[in-house]
């Protein structure tokens, strides 16, 4: 569903943000990309969403090249951005309604929206509350519900648990696993090794633009993922 083939991005100032990255996320699979700040995780997502264009290689969504046919490709992917504020003067439902319509879902009812918001664990009284009263966790949940309501086969998540408290993080995990059950291809970039270990089917470690390591669930459950991660990170300084 999500496929990166030799994905490369070099900026005008010469910086190589992504260096021939290859991976694939199948349906019903959660792929977690770990890496330090600036390693290239967000760049990968930006390439899939055609916010920038690759210097080389391809990013495919459902077999569609997102550089060549961005609008078509975006029909098949949902996006949860890092730390998004959303529209503070609108209510949760109004925000959800707006993005649902943009995502092509034009005939949903209020109850549909309420349903999704319940699904992500938002309290009933928050449904018609303005976003400016929301805590970070609540906003994050709304962000997920936006992705859910689009009902796209693939989901891209950029640091979704950063700044969430353990309870919210755990709730989020449950939602992710539910989505995986439904057969979504999920790509998640994160720092949260713990969360990655819990939900990922496969894990990749990105360092200075290169995918330096990839392990399946069985593989990294055997090894010590934290040690692995830190070892790879420290190779830089060694």
């Amino acid at each position: 569903m999500l496929k990166a083939i030799d994905l490369t991005k070099r900026y005008e100032d010469g910086i190589l943000a992504l260096d021939h990255v290859n991976f694939e996320v199948k349906a019903g699979e959660i792929f977690c990309m770990l890496g330090a700040n600036g390693a290239g995780k967000t760049t990968t997502i930006n390439l899939f969403l055609n916010f920038i264009e690759p210097t080389d290689g391809k990013a495919l969504i459902n077999g569609i090249d997102s550089t060549k046919e961005p609008l078509k490709a975006k029909k098949y992917v949902a996006y949860v951005s890092e730390n998004v504020m959303l529209y503070s003067n609108f209510t949760a439902r109004q925000n959800l309604d707006f993005f649902a319509k943009l995502g092509g879902k034009t005939d949903l009812t209020k109850e549909d929206y309420y349903q999704v918001m319940r699904q992500v664990g938002l309290q009933e009284k928050a449904f018609e509350a303005k976003l400016k009263t929301f805590s970070k966790g609540m906003r994050q949940k709304l962000g997920i519900s936006i992705a859910i309501i689009k009902d796209a086969p693939a989901i891209l998540l950029d640091e979704p648990t950063s700044g969430l408290d353990p309870k919210a993080s755990a709730e989020f995990q449950k939602i992710l696993l539910d989505l995986k059950e439904k057969g979504k291809s999920i790509f998640m970039s994160t720092h949260d090794i713990f969360r990655a270990k819990t939900v990922a089917d496969r894990v990749g470690i990105m360092k200075e633009g290169r995918l330096v390591m990839m392990r399946t669930r069985e593989e990294f459950l055997e090894e010590n993922l934290e040690k692995l991660y830190l070892d790879y990170m420290q190779e830089k300084t060694a």
Binding site: S81, F99, L102, G104
Partner: peptide, 14 residues
Amino acid sequence: EKGTLRLVFSNNLP
């Protein structure tokens, strides 16, 4: 600045 622009353009919107 708020990040909603990215969200909007992650959709099929010219």
